[in-house]
């Protein structure tokens, strides 16, 4: 097992999982009584939404830990997770727009859920812009961590929006379980697991790249210091 993790061998387990999820989504799952085949957009939408929740939660936890410890390793985790979370939020918005067109007949409406998701995307896009604004890594990490926590406040609002306010967005997860046919639930769960696997892979790549960037900056500063530049 250790060898599998060390040599990135775990990665190849993800391919059959993803192809399996695609098979369940496209071929195995039944049509919706009203939406027909366009129901299948939902599996991608839900998988991406689950990753958004996970990614921004990791960003929030890593940001708090950075503010407490001032260890830049946590800032790297927060940044990597926020970047990937923003990409997946874009996927949620795009797939939601396509599904909305099929289900409601409109591309966009200023519904509480849709609006809070768009705000979430804007907040984390701002977070990514802020990270490019300062060369001082510690100052940048502190500002970014504070903004990440402010932005994260929108995550529970986004989740609860369809329960707190009148919304045309369907409530899938209720107090009585998942509001869907059993076969659809299976397809949705496998999609969520496959998307989380994709997120883990991107995280591994991004964290390694950010660590390398940081180490190169350290070596460059060391050389500049010695050269007296």
């Amino acid at each position: 097992m250790k060898k599998l993790v060390k040599a990135d061998g775990w990665y190849w387990l993800l391919l059959p999982l993803m192809v399996g999820a695609l098979y369940l989504d496209f071929v195995w799952s039944p049509d919706d009584r009203i939406l027909g085949a366009s129901q299948r957009i939902f599996y991608f939408h839900m998988g991406a939404a689950a990753v958004v929740l996970l990614a921004f939660s990791i960003t929030a936890v890593a940001s708090v830990t950075y503010l407490l410890t001032r260890n830049l390793a946590w800032d790297v985790w927060a940044a990597a997770s926020a970047e990937i979370g923003t990409v997946f939020t874009t996927m949620v918005l795009v797939s939601g727009t396509l599904w909305g067109r099929a289900a409601w007949g409109i591309w966009w409406t200023w519904d509480p859920r849709l609006t809070s998701t768009l705000i979430l995307w804007v907040l984390f896009a701002g977070y990514l812009l802020l990270r490019d604004s300062s060369d001082n890594v510690y100052r940048r990490a502190t500002y970014a961590a504070v903004l990440a926590l402010v932005a994260f406040a929108d995550v529970p609002i986004d989740y609860m929006a369809i329960r707190w306010w009148h919304s045309i967005h369907p409530v899938v997860i209720t107090d009585h379980g998942v509001n869907m046919a059993p076969h659809m639930v299976d397809a949705m769960l496998v999609s969520i697991v496959a998307f989380i696997g994709l997120f883990v892979t991107w995280m591994v790549i991004r964290v390694r790249l950010l660590r390398t960037e940081m180490a190169i900056d350290q070596v460059k500063n060391l050389w500049r210091g010695r050269a007296g530049v």
């Binding site: 990135d8 990665y11 190849w12 892979t201 790549i205 390694r208 790249l209 390398t212």
Partner: peptide, 9 residues
Amino acid sequence: MFKMLQKTR
């Protein structure tokens, strides 16, 4: 992605 994993490693 596998190439990326190898290169980052």
